[in-house]
Design a protein around this nucleic acid. Structure first.
Length: 237
DNA sequence: AGGCGTACCTGAGGGC
DNA sequence: TGCCCTCAGGTACGCC
């Protein structure tokens, strides 16, 4: 999915029009009037920036879409991990993506069913986009802290009660982060170039050696599936 | 199937 | 100052 580093669809977009902008998991979906979609994966440092006519080139811009009124949509990315792909009408580009964690279908029971029998650490499970689409490293860490669950616990070993707590925590964290327009830990800004606010609400992410907001013991950083993992050894079990 | 390691990139920050 | 090391909102691919 999204294999093109240097999009070659420039000419194909000429004359088309943006009909709507949406999201599926972590992918931004720009729906075009032609029925096609421009699907964007920001990965670690990617940004979509709307710029007025004549604005200076945004740093690390890789792709620019220019509209008839001169407005531009810039796709900028220091690390160039981000991807942009033109998807044809009815193409099932998201077939491998899992359930939306804020959808009605995502009940505690549904979460339990997805985790049943899985021996993978619950944090690794949360990051697997084929199971649940849209939870990243920050929100997995925050939700597990909120639920009082140790990140290495095998997903399939959680009790019904703990699954319910994890489910509630995930939705709480995601809703609040969306309300606050995201986490600007370092580079992230929205399409208007504005930083989000959730970095001020982080309880564990990036806070090695700081006091756990619940019990006061120092938080630790460990590594799980090659990802930094912040948690409290005392109150996450 | 599923789980694990590696590759892809650049810049910031800390230690010496 | 500057070099070297580690780390960072993620995903795809290949191997067992």
């Amino acid at each position: 999915m999204l294999a093109s580093r240097r999009p070659s669809f420039g000419k194909q977009l000429a004359g088309d029009r943006i009909a709507d902008v949406g999201r599926r998991g972590k992918y931004v979906v720009i729906e075009l009037a032609s029925g096609r979609s421009l699907v964007v994966s920001l990965r670690m440092t990617g940004l979509l920036i709307v710029q007025p006519q004549g604005a200076p080139r945004y740093p690390y811009t890789n792709v620019i879409l220019e509209f008839t009124d001169g407005t531009r949509l810039a796709f900028a990315d220091v690390r160039r991990f981000g991807r942009m792909r033109l998807v044809q009408k009815d193409e099932a580009w998201d077939a491998q993506l899992g359930i939306e964690p804020l959808s009605k279908a995502f009940s505690a029971q549904a979460l339990g069913a997805l985790m049943r029998g899985r021996r993978t650490p619950v944090k690794v499970f949360l990051l697997d986009q084929r199971r649940i689409a849209g939870v990243g490293n920050i929100y997995a860490a925050e939700a597990l802290w909120e639920a009082g669950i140790k990140p290495t616990t095998p997903a399939g070993k959680l009790s019904t009660e703990r699954i319910a707590r994890l489910h509630a925590a995930l939705q709480k964290v995601l809703r609040k982060a969306i309300d606050m327009r995201g986490t600007s830990a370092r580079d992230y800004v929205d399409a208007d170039g504005l930083a989000g606010g959730f970095q001020n609400e982080l309880r564990v992410y990036g806070r090695s050696d700081e006091a756990c907001p619940r019990c006061g013991k120092p938080l630790v950083r460990t590594v799980l599936a090659q990802r930094g993992t912040w948690w409290c050894r005392n109150c996450q079990r």
